[in-house]
Design a protein around this nucleic acid. Structure first.
Lengths: 350, 350
DNA sequence: TTTAGCACTCATACTACCTGAGTGCTAAAG
DNA sequence: CTTTAGCACTCAGGTAGTATGAGTGCTAAA
């Protein structure tokens, strides 16, 4: 798509004005914007051209123009200038990283919350799923004669635990034996290779304590399952209502519902390749997002995992500012995790 | 407050009709409701009486009456009949308990989600904080020569863990020594008794490995902190928009914002004494809830902790149905935890 | 190629008006 | 003393007509 320099300037002026005001912008407004030395009629002609190129749209005959998704795409790809974060902004993000991540108990969730506060848009956060996780090791810790703790660690260095109480007593030796057996039999296996036969063999080998095998293994399977299935966290969805485009409930409700019904992930786009991705309007797969834009960034969690944070908003969102903030934050998160400092690949929580 | 039998019947009819329709109910409607053998004029007189008692209100002169908060309170206390759960309803709840709690990684959160689905109202869930939790035991598990897992267990039987990587290597013996030292020094202490002096003494005793002490202990402190500080989870807030009273954004927005800004707990009422509590309109402390009703139930999590789940809705919510469902679910949760079955006092999660 | 002028479009706001549900009061009937 | 019928009155909500003004496309002149 080749445009004259003037057309580009006009398009950009329109888009940036619309991003600010959410109102269709007319030829007069552009003509009087500084640096435009032509009359409104000329602008009108140019705008007509831009419209026939599919970059602009008219809500109705006698309104100004608004950018089309294609227009935003062109803007994002070619017109948009890098937004420089102000010192205050970077400071605010750094502070959020420091402050939040200390007391953080769920990294992802918290990251999403920070993004939402930072951008004033609803945000979502998820971990990019890793398939074929396996258990690397089991540890059984005796607590009392009738209670012990299972600790499992995966090959991605995630550690999970559970306290188990028993109706019967148990000796330290039995627990040791069980521990060895588990490590010998069930480590290194992905979820779908933990078969009932395998279980039966192990239970046979366990002798008296055969019942415990299934307890521990099913916990391990739960862990594997929960890791393969990503969960999404959304936050700040109430921000939507502050935007003029969502002042009417008909518009707001479907999107709100879509964002707040957790559970099934995969509803949100995940950048496979790039670190950052912008999806404008109909570029989104999900129907509920067809009228919105999504900006996603991914960051390195370490241990082969990636975290994904994203922002959902109207197509007229301030891409320059949002991408700047998001990428700065994502970098910060990468660094934070990269250091292997605080949360590492571990977990803590509740 | 003493009312004639007829006044009670009328009040009840009005409230139940309003709960259904959300529209002011007039004298005619009541008169023609079966079992009322008097004319609308008589009803009007009675309604005027009920209004002067503060049990009813008029939105404006020529509309019907709506119940006042006081009216609802009277209804809840004296008029409401026990709602019997249908077989389908109990089955649905049981199923939710079974299904959801299996794959559950955050009990509270999930409980809230179930409630919201069950009632079609926004729900919140939190654990009633327990003060003065202490660490019962530490376990350090060697993973590699430069990495180990901390597992701590509190006296309330919550288990948490974290993976620690080190820049230097570590011998099994050192880890053992550290483990013993930790258990000797830091168990049985509430958060505020873990003083810097204590740390210094322990670090001195640890010799070479003194740096690890602070790592492990600060993790333990994090755990204690996170347990004393309750967190809230809200879910299903989009359900609000389905209700006629929140079809206008002015009404909906403040409440939505209130519900979705997580972080500070204590925003939600917690039943101190009873198992179930109903707060109607102005009975709520929080300003944002002055126009809403809240129904909360608490359930036994075991190990001295209680969970709290609650529902937020308009004052005209169907108290009979909601309380029935909530208390059945709370019982189910109590039983589920009581058995020490699945999640027990433990944790797993992400 | 640019500009001024002009007729035309159409969403939005405003006004006036009507309708109907519901009320309170009064006076008669039980 | 209670209940009922009748009637005037109130008032939110809907409908219709009208004005306003921002913005457009087209034409013709610069």
């Amino acid at each position: 798509m080749d445009l004259t320099e003037r057309k580009k300037r006009i398009l950009r002026a329109i888009i940036e004005s619309y991003i600010q005001s959410a109102e269709p912008v007319g030829s007069k407004a552009i003509a009087s914007s500084i640096g435009m030395e032509v009359s409104s009629a000329t602008i009108r002609n140019e705008m007509a051209d831009l419209e026939s190129l599919g970059l602009l749209e008219k809500p109705h005959t006698s309104a100004g123009r608004i950018p089309s998704p294609k227009g935003y795409r062109f803007y994002v790809n070619e017109l948009m200038e890098e937004h420089k974060l102000s010192l205050q902004e970077t400071e605010r993000i750094n502070q959020a990283l420091r402050l939040k991540m200390q007391e953080l108990d769920r990294v992802l969730d918290q990251a999403g919350r920070v993004v939402s506060q930072l951008t004033n848009y609803p945000a979502f956060a998820l971990s990019s799923g890793m398939s074929r996780v396996t258990i690397r090791r089991f540890d059984l810790l005796m607590v009392e004669h009738n209670a012990f703790i299972i600790v499992v660690m995966t090959d991605t260095n995630v550690v999970r635990n559970r306290l188990i109480r028993l109706p019967t007593d148990l000796t330290e030796a039995q627990l040791q034996m069980l521990n060895t057996l588990l490590n010998a039999t069930f480590t290194g296996l992905p979820l779908d290779e933990i078969t009932p036969e395998l279980m039966r063999v192990a239970q046979h080998a366990a002798g008296e304590a055969y019942g415990l095998i299934s307890l521990v293994v099913s916990f391990a399977m739960e862990v594997l399952e929960s890791l393969e299935q990503r969960t999404v966290h959304t936050s700040g969805i109430a921000h939507l209502l502050e935007l003029p485009e969502y002042r009417s409930l008909e518009r707001a409700q479907p999107l709100l519902s879509y964002l707040s019904e957790d559970a099934d992930p995969g509803r949100f786009p995940v950048p496979k390749d790039a670190a950052m991705k912008i999806l404008i309007g109909p570029e989104n797969v999900a129907d509920a997002l067809k009228d919105t834009s999504v900006v996603v960034a991914s960051y390195d969690i370490g241990e082969g995992m990636r975290g994904v944070i994203g922002v959902v908003g109207p197509t007229r969102m301030d891409y320059a500012k949002i991408t700047a903030r998001l990428s700065y934050l994502a970098e910060g998160l990468s660094r934070l995790f990269g250091h292997g400092e605080l949360p590492g690949g571990s977990d803590d929580h509740k």
